[in-house]
């Protein structure tokens, strides 16, 4: 069971790292600020989510797992709110 949980952790964290790397690639390669925001809010959000999912079986308690989930939820909420505000400013400045 522990081996299965460890294997799940390794796979999910690796997948998370892949999406974080893809988000960084998008940040570097996308042509404008607004497109780069998609990379930061979506690919990185998924990357962090997969890492959290992978670490949950290793948390040791339900409270620990909930804490990880809360970190992800707060990161997504902050990303969604701030992303929109930056997008608004970037659009205004590009006009």
């Amino acid at each position: 069971m522990s081996l299965l949980a460890d294997a799940f952790t390794v796979l999910a964290v690796l997948a998370g790292l892949f999406f974080l790397a893809a988000g960084t690639l998008g940040l570097l390669r996308f042509p404008d600020t607004l497109s780069r925001l998609h990379a930061l809010t979506k690919a990185d959000g998924l990357g962090l989510g997969l890492i959290v999912l992978g670490l949950m079986p290793q948390a040791g308690s339900l409270l620990g797992a909930l804490k990880l989930l809360l970190v992800w939820a707060l990161a997504m909420l902050a990303g969604a709110t701030v992303g929109q505000m930056i997008a608004r400013i970037a659009r205004r400045e590009s006009q």
Binding site: F18, F19, A22, G23, L25, G26, R29, F30, P31, D32, L34, S35, H38, A39, K42, A43, G45, L46, G47, G49, M76
Partner: peptide, 19 residues
């Protein structure tokens, strides 16, 4: 989130963009 992240990741690699 999986759909959104995968879509952005694919576009980061192949740059199929029409923003």
């Amino acid at each position: 989130a999986l759909r959104a992240g995968t879509e952005v990741a694919c576009r980061a690699f192949d740059l199929r963009l029409s923003p």
